[in-house]
Nucleic acid binder design. Structure first.
Lengths: 257, 257
DNA sequence: AGTCTTATTATACGTATGTATAATACTCAA
DNA sequence: TTGAGTATTATACATACGTATAATAAGACT
């Protein structure tokens, strides 16, 4: 009780000093902080979280780091979000929408034709702002969380379903125009994997190959698809009934080296 | 001083009790723990770390969790490794070697012929033990660390260089046999990306497509490569000098839908 | 059986985390 | 200008982390 009184007294002194300084500040018209609408502040915190995930990874992204990145006090995070986990999930949703937005911008600039749209999609995938190691950093943490967190897993499912659906729409448009008879779903899976793989590996280590080479490879795949060469052999084989084991080739000659 | 004496006395009692229980145990011939060679214990801890990374992610993988997973006390981790960071790095090296080992096993069973080896490589990539969501979980944490940790980045560079080099060897073997004149390096990049993308996306969400479909797609790519259709158009165009912008197609007709 | 080495455990310490609560002060409306 | 509402800060707290140190005991060798 004694110590508490002393502390209260000390606190009172501090309050007086602070009030004095505050008065000084008022004359300077310099508020200690500025208010903001919840919606705006939430977006700022989400963007700060994305930057932190890119730079410091998931375990380096703490309440205090995010708050510092956003230039606010740590307590504000809990005021606008249910918790750290909620913030991460919201950042996933936001990042997904940002990517979607960047793609839409690139696609509206291209002619409204399936192949042109697909080509524009490829070019956009391998240039800024999509070809960004920081974006990969954010995406990697989400992929990690997908494996354990049901909520993140659900978000992932939706984001990727939309992604593949769009590619499949373009591919079926091309297939229709070129009068191709092939499994468009399988083609979309293959092309998605190719794009993702190129994007992933370039962002992981940009010194391995250039963005232009990635574009060349992707466009070449589209060429092959247009030429009706995708899964041509599988079609020639007809409906193969063996679903258990993958095909094994007949060895033309033993010992090559 | 008083409290300390008391505590010392209490500790003495505990020691007596422990000794008594220990004596009891001795009669039962049941040691409190078993010793092990450092090399063996290190491997146990590394494997425990891999399991933890797969199940709980990087931030869920702590000294205490790993120790519990390995069935030892937390202190033992620091006795065998310089620290948590060291343990993670060693786990990366070990995992890389395990993958290498699994691939070698699959390849030695296949005929010693470039195409057969490549086909076996594909099949092995999309079946156990390589097609494992847990393995992806481990790999994702390493990819995340690659972006910030120089040591992990170096390990990554070596692992991936070996990986691509092996694929390129097979591809150039096939190219030589089929008398193809193409950019083998670019082909290896494309095929690596396709395999990685398929592997990544299947492990992230196995419900999207089956391992057999992944195999079909990959084998189809090899078919296309064998037929000399890889980058055929780029070759037909000759040496294109424009390196700045990716190619943009000529639109056959405006408005498709 | 006794002794030595060291693998292993036990315990403690400082720090950083997420969350909770109270105090503060900015902004708008009256 | 004053008052109310609440965005924002400040502070506190329990917990979990990585690491350091000392104590313990298992196993091998004489």
């Amino acid at each position: 009780m004694g110590p508490k009184l002393v502390r209260t007294w000390a606190q009172s002194v501090l309050v007086l000093v602070r009030d004095y300084l505050g008065t000084q500040r008022v004359t300077d018209k310099e508020p200690k902080f500025t208010r903001d609408l919840p919606e705006s502040r939430r977006r700022q915190l989400i963007e700060a979280t994305a930057r932190s995930l890119a730079r410091h990874g998931l375990d380096g992204t703490t309440v205090r780091v995010v708050a510092a990145e956003a230039g606010v006090s740590p307590g504000l995070v809990r005021h606008h979000f249910a918790g750290m986990h909620d913030l991460i999930a919201e950042t996933y949703r936001w990042t997904g929408k940002e990517v979607e937005k960047a793609l839409r911008a690139a696609l509206t600039a291209a002619p409204d034709h399936p192949e042109a749209q697909l080509r524009a999609f490829v070019d956009a995938s391998f240039s800024a702002p999509l070809l960004d190691p920081d974006l990969l950093g954010v995406w990697l943490t989400f992929w990690s969380l997908t494996r354990t967190d049901p909520e993140i897993h659900a978000i992932h499912g939706k984001v990727y379903a939309d992604y593949r659906k769009r590619l499949q729409r373009y591919l079926s448009g091309i297939a229709e125009h070129e009068k191709l008879d092939l499994d468009v779903r399988l083609a979309a899976l293959a092309f998605t994997a190719l794009l993702d793989g190129l994007w992933l590996e370039h962002c992981l280590d940009p010194s391995t190959f250039t963005a232009i080479e990635a574009c060349q490879i992707a466009h070449d795949w589209v060429d092959t698809f247009k030429a009706g060469r995708f899964m041509a052999r599988a079609k020639a084989d007809g409906a193969r009934a063996d679903g258990a084991k993958p095909q094994m080739i007949a060895v033309p000659e033993a010992k090559a080296g």
